[in-house]
Each structure stands twice: as C-alpha cells, then as structure tokens.
Amino acid sequence: MTVLRIDASIQGPNSASSELADLAEAEWAAVRPGTEFVRRHLGSDPLPADAWQTAIGANFTPEEQRTDAQRAAQALAQQVAAELRDAEAVILALPLYNYGISQHAKIWIDLAMAGGSNPGERLLDGKPAILLTTRGGGYGPGTPREGWDHNTSYLTRVVADIWGADLTLIERELTLAGVNPAMDSLRETAELLKKAAHEAAAHAGRTIATR
C-alpha cells in the first residue's frame, strides 16, 4: 500500500501538525508494516512560487513554442497530480497561518489542479484521507475570532468535494498556549485539546489502515 504524506509547517521539529501526522503514520505502519510512505514536505522544501503561473501559461502556448521553464513547470504539476492519483491513501498535515491556508500548501494544491486531466479531476476519488490541521489560537463559537479560520473549510472543500476523498478531519487549537504569555490562562484547556487531537490522530491511523 502507498500512502502520500504532505506536511506544510514551517516550525520544523516544533510543528504541532507534523506531530499529529507522525502519530497517524506510526499507527498506520504498526498495523500495515509493508506500507510505503511517499513524503513531500512543503515547508522545508517548498515548491517554486511561480510554478503554477508558468504551468498554466504553458497550457495556452503551442507545444513547439513552450520555453524550458514552461515545460519544467508542466512536468512538476503533472508529478504533483500523479502523486495524489497514484496514492492509495493520504495523510495531510496542513496548519492554519495568518487566518488562512499556508502559501506552501496553496501552491501545491494549485499545481495539483494544473497537472490533472482537468481542474476538477477527482485525484483522490474514494480514497481515505486524514487531514490534520492546527491553529495557534481559538476560533470556535463564541471566541473573539470566530469565523476567522479561512483554512479548514477551504481544505475540506478541495480534499473531499473536489478531489473526492473519504475524509477524516482532525483539528487542534490553542497550540500557542504556553508559548505566547498572553495565552497562559488557556494552558489547561490547550493540554486537553492536545490530548484529544493526539488520540484522534492515532486512532485514525490505526483504524483506516485496517480497511
């Protein structure tokens, strides 16, 4: 079995989203030891910011007139799409940054759509996907920033509705409690949320791997 894992954190070893993905992957590997994990870390090895624009430009340029840069961007877009298409399942660790989707993840999504047979290709049609997303603050009902999360609904729309995945969504909030002194009063709540998210990630990896 082949599982595609995508990380987008810029936090390196301190990443809360990658920590959740590690738990899901470890449980998955324990249940199915022969699983091949194909990894792409968009935070530590970002895709070129201009690749999507260049690939789209290539689509509107006669093949014999395309530049080397256009051909390279097209090939990259097709590779990104093929990684999704060829995977039997995916683990996506995609945190919220500045109230929205990480720029690294957005470039990856745009390239995948450019590299598909059409922008709406169901690259994950019916395949299990574990989406792990983290938020430094609180964005739930009744909080001052309720409605400010423009990341989770977008990712859900793309992964489940456009790409057709069988989605399991796991969220963790208040990851900056204990880091930002202004959030010290929320540390106990943050620990409970962390524990719940860790348990959910491990459970998802374990149970989905048995399907």
Rank of each mutant, 00 (worst) to 15 (best):
H104A: 05
H41N: 15
Q53G: 01
F60H: 10
A69Y: 01
A49R: 11
N59S: 12
D68V: 14
A81H: 01
E27Q: 13
H41C: 08
G43R: 04
T54N: 00
D50L: 11
R85S: 08
V31I: 14
Q53R: 13
R39M: 03
A26C: 06
L23V: 03
A49V: 15
S44Y: 04
G57F: 12
A26Q: 12
A58M: 07
A93S: 13
A82Q: 11
I91W: 03
T61Q: 12
G43T: 04
G57L: 14
A24L: 05
H41R: 12
T67Y: 10
Y99P: 00
R39P: 02
D86C: 11
I91S: 05
A93Y: 09
R66T: 03
A55W: 07
A55P: 03
G43W: 11
Q65E: 15
N98M: 06
L96S: 01
H104G: 08
V80S: 03
R71A: 02
A26H: 03
R85Q: 01
A82P: 02
P95Y: 07
L84T: 09
A89G: 14
R40V: 06
R40D: 05
I91C: 04
R85Y: 04
A55S: 14
N59L: 15
D50H: 06
E88K: 14
F60D: 00
W28G: 06
G57N: 14
Y97E: 00
K106N: 06
E64A: 13
A89C: 11
L92S: 03
A51D: 09
A58K: 07
A30F: 00
Q103S: 15
Y97V: 03
F60C: 00
G43F: 13
E64N: 11
T54G: 06
A55N: 04
G34N: 04
H41M: 02
A26V: 05
